[in-house]
């Protein structure tokens, strides 16, 4: 009896796990199925849900039409520069907030919290004017600069620093190391998981960012992948197969990155909230 009820319970759990998985993954699987059936109309009724045949024509055609390598390369360049700078700035800024006692610390902290309530669109206008005034329109730096410092990342790093035992800093001081050396050689290695998390979060943000690059870049050949996809969707919304294939191409790299790094990523998310 017990064994039966146990395996029934398991069956019940797997049923719900699969129902949710279909709900979350189904749309992607359907997209793949559309991309593999050139000539099929997405808007025919009843819609084709499962592929009746498989043909990679859409992929070949859209790849020839749009130089995906270039857009992926643009994205990778922006993301890598952005991620490195972002890690550097967040790590430096968060450190004193976690370990030093100084006048104005609480004020700065409060100011940082307060910025999280501003509607994103409100900042866009002034940031656009700033980038324009700095002469950075139509440059990668103009795309990257506003997003390399994030209040969220500063909080995350601060939380990580607070978890480092004080003795480590003290031992560095005994040996007469400067604060900068203590930070770089003793503390930084201790917060590697948090660095991995902000690196990943930023990488995903850069990969998926579409609006700001469209605002800053005039030359569409400089677009990152998400902006290029939205451009393709605007220009060829009637060519479903191409757009489906393009979407699959744009989504796969980030999913692969996520799957390979999810261990750190998920640990980091939980670490970030625990504080």
């Amino acid at each position: 009896m017990r064994i039966i009820s146990k395996s029934l319970k398991k069956l019940f759990l797997y049923f719900w796990l699969i129902v949710f998985a279909l709900f979350m993954m189904g749309p992607f699987l359907w997209l793949v199925s559309v991309s593999l059936m050139p000539g099929e109309n997405v808007f025919s009724f009843p819609p084709k849900i499962f592929p009746t045949f498989i043909d990679f024509k859409n992929y070949i055609e859209v790849w020839e039409f749009m130089d995906f390598f270039k857009y992926i390369w643009n994205t990778v360049v922006m993301a890598v520069i952005g991620v490195v700078l972002s890690i550097f700035f967040s790590c430096l800024t968060a450190y004193p907030l976690a370990v030093f006692k100084f006048k104005g610390r609480d004020t700065i902290f409060l100011l940082l919290v307060a910025t999280m309530i501003i509607p994103a669109a409100a900042g866009l206008v002034v940031n656009y004017l700033t980038i324009n005034a700095l002469g950075l329109m139509d440059t990668y730096l103009g795309v990257i600069l506003p997003s390399i410092i994030s209040v969220f990342n500063i909080f995350l790093m601060r939380q990580a620093y607070m978890g480092v035992p004080l003795e480590i800093r003290d031992s560095g001081k005994m040996d007469g190391a400067s604060e900068f050396r203590i930070w770089f050689q003793l503390i930084m290695p201790m917060v590697k998981p948090a660095i991995a998390v902000i690196g990943l979060l930023e990488f995903m943000a850069f990969w998926n960012n579409f609006l700001w690059p469209i605002i800053v870049l005039n030359d569409t050949s400089k677009y990152p992948i998400a902006s290029a996809l939205s451009f393709l969707n605007g220009q060829f919304s009637f060519n479903f197969g191409w757009i489906a294939a393009g979407t699959v191409i744009s989504v796969i790299p980030i999913i692969v990155v996520f799957l390979f790094t999810q261990k750190y990523y998920m640990e980091g998310i939980s670490g970030a909230v625990k504080g």
Binding site: S230, V251, F258
Partner: peptide, 9 residues
């Protein structure tokens, strides 16, 4: 996975 995909997609 929906969290990591772009809003455009």
């Amino acid at each position: 996975i929906p969290v990591v995909t772009s809003m455009v997609a």
